[in-house]
Design a protein around this nucleic acid. Sequence first.
RNA 1: GCCGGAGUGGCGGAACCGGCAGACGCGCCGGACUCAAAAUCCGGUGGGCUUUCACGCCCGUGAGGGUUCGAGUCCCUCCUCCGGCACCA
Length: 872
Amino acid sequence: MAERKYRPGEVEGKWRQVWEDRGLFRAPDVPGPEHCYVLEMFPYPSGRLHMGHVRNYAIGDAVARFRRMRGATVLHPMGWDAFGLPAEQAAIERGLDPAEWTFGNIAQMRSQLRLLGLSYDWTREVTTCVPEYYRWEQLVFVRMQQAGLAYRRKSLVNWSEALQTVLANEQVIDGRDYKLGEPVVQRDLEQWFFRTTAYAERLLAGLDALEGKWPERVLLEQRARIGKSVGAEIAFPLEKPVAGEKAIVVFTTRPDTLFGVTFMSLAAEHPLAIEFARGTEREREVRAFVERVRGEDKRRRVAEDHVKEGVFTGARCVNPATGEHVPIFIADFVLMDYGTGAVMAVPAHDQRDFELARKYDLPIRVVIRPPDGTLDPATMEAAYAGEGVQVASGEFDGLHNTEGMRRIAEWLRTRGRGGPAVSYRLRDWCVSRQRYWGCPIPMIHCPGCGIVPVPESDLPVVLPRDVAFQAHGGSPLARHPAFPNVACPRCREPARRDLDTLDTFVESSWYFLRYLDPAWDGGIARPDRVLGWMAVDLYIGGIEHAVGHLMYARFYHMMLKDLGFLPPGTPDEPFERLLTQGMVTKETHYTLDDAGNPVWHYPEDVEDGRSRIDGRPVQVGRVEKMSKSRRNVVGLEAFVERYGADTARLFALFAAPPEKDLEWRDDGVEGCWRFLARVWRIVHEAAAAPAGGGEPVPFDELAPEWQAVTRMVHRTIRRVTHDIDARLHFNTALAAIMELTNAIAAAPPPSASEPPGAGAARREASDALLRLLSPFAPHLCDELWETLGGAGTTLEAGWPRFDPAIAAAETVTIAVQVGGKLRGQVELPAGSGEEETVAAARAEPNVARHLEGRRVVRTVFVPGRLVNFVVK
RNA sequence: GCCGGAGUGGCGGAACCGGCAGACGCGCCGGACUCAAAAUCCGGUGGGCUUUCACGCCCGUGAGGGUUCGAGUCCCUCCUCCGGCACCA
């Protein structure tokens, strides 16, 4: 009988069709009692799926299929984060229509995704750039504005000249934008903000509940981003009121050092900065300083070797504790957007204040005495920021400074001069973008009424399609003949629409809710579905979203609940468990050009160590993240053509644990391919076996070699179940499956004279193997399932069960140590007691040899594991 | 600077609670099949010593120290790499 060879191309398409025809992946609207929402971060439709996507979706799909086989109703959807800059770039550079470009890419990527056989419920597909989606975002925006959670404010924002738009703080990395890496400058512009700061405490508290369920690293980064500081606010009355202000308010984490304040520092951006000097002889100097600092590059300002500078404003304020009058400076290190933009300066106990005091010869007053002695202001070389005892602090002298903090803050409160306060590093989220391809902000600017929301009955504000693009012409919406002009909904006079669009991170802050009810025209999603499915049980995506998307989505979800868009009882946190997968990398190849710069090569352009392009010798470069520019990308279609989707999925899961980086290696891929081909052969052999010992017999009556195989089957089921379910470690699950495969292959070959039950045991082993492997390589497994005569698909067949009695070892290998060193092993029946185990251990020849002439002072017995004879 | 994480064969990685280090895969070596190759199958593979073989012994998880009958795992010091934050008052 001619054995069929494993050709994925011949089976994969067939099974995808079967799955689709049977609707196997369709999720019910309201879930069953056992349910699971598995979600992978949806992609931007760039047009090409890369191996990073493959890995992400292979992980999610393995879990989704596994949970389905275990009997859960599973929601596993996919969609498109379809607004964004590349579409607009294509329009500007190549004259394409952003919508057409986007939808074309979506079609292309959808077919690539289908090629992988991922178990998505495609009836729930969501695309963010259609009005049916973003209309709800506009409604939410209007309600947010009415609730004061969305507001417009003029402030310093990050402006990218290259991208021609403002950016959120999370989108600026080291002073450069997150897309192109071009410089970002600070500009004073009026923009829309979401009041994320109102949720700082809740966002922080929520992280505690995610402990153990989210990667520690993400929790740490979010905590750092929120940056909670506990301290006090203190009002310093001005000698002379300025611009209507009678006091300067500072935030400090060190109220205990209040008696050591010898001057005051304001940010250059502080509204009163220039006011103090206005009309005095200092005005010119102060103005010059303020303007210089404001214009300075932010990165230079924080550079290592930057020398702190300041300027005296000429004004003074009063220390509420000492009554002392201290000078007010403007200092270049004070940030306007943290605290109040004003800092009380305590040179003895803060390094920055110390440096400024030394430079401008300002007094230094010690008010905290360190445990190991005293400080001399005249000779100290650095500020002392540690703990100690209050000195020169009036009635607080002698207190430990941690107590001093509390008491002084309280003392201020009772006198109406401030009191305990908390400050956060988190800023409000700047959401307006001066770009076309995004969700229009549903607001109207009326000369008479000011900012007026678009009436809810007029929503959605549809993004016009008939626009013209220019490279540097600002938003095309402004040039649209009709779009900007609108009658004010309040006074009916001519008014102008807001021409900005929303940050695309707003769309991705709630798409997981829309999957629950993608076509509903009554809101985001019906309450029973939200209550049924939320929260997402497992969310999988890249670590790069640790503080951006993952923080925005948490905020937005909490806020939607507060505004009544989600029913009471919805969990506060949208993502119950988070898996951040590592990057997919590959080695690079390059030649050096005349200037010594690397010229990156595709592997297929390398022949016998030389480049086919420039003929130069090719060198192997570093292993780097797959990218077009490095030419180390593995193309999906060609790969699937050659190896099939199952091999791609298998490799993505086997080569590394999911949270680590994964190096794509051709020989590793070959290994996965060989494994699948081996499974194919083994199962075909089992299927073609003559019916010798075909009928099943009880385990106890099986021949020993088949008992061993059967025991292996049950243990493997236990191991794989645990590895997927509890640990999400697919690499070890697959290693266990490979071991089972090896055991099956090593079992006696089929013959007509097999012992009773052998054929059935062989079949049982193949049956289990296919079911265990099917979340990882579903096409192959379903084909072989059919070969074995199974009904339907592995998914419908369900996850195999193990019998703990069979999985339990009949014998165990006990390690025997003498003095902590391994000296032998003994085989004993499982569950043997201490007495018999120790006796057997002593009897082991090599052990006996090592015990000879020595006195055993103690015997350590670990049941089922080891015996250690402690000798003298 | 501060806060994390990680260092295990030639390589990716395993060892879940302190109990046989190196599972599984790659690579490599040897063999079978073949006219030959590919494919496949079988065996070996941390280093060293000993030995005809089998066995046996020593060393070994970045370095050094400690706790323990026993440490890749816990503690201390240090080195290296990676990540985050970085004038946050």
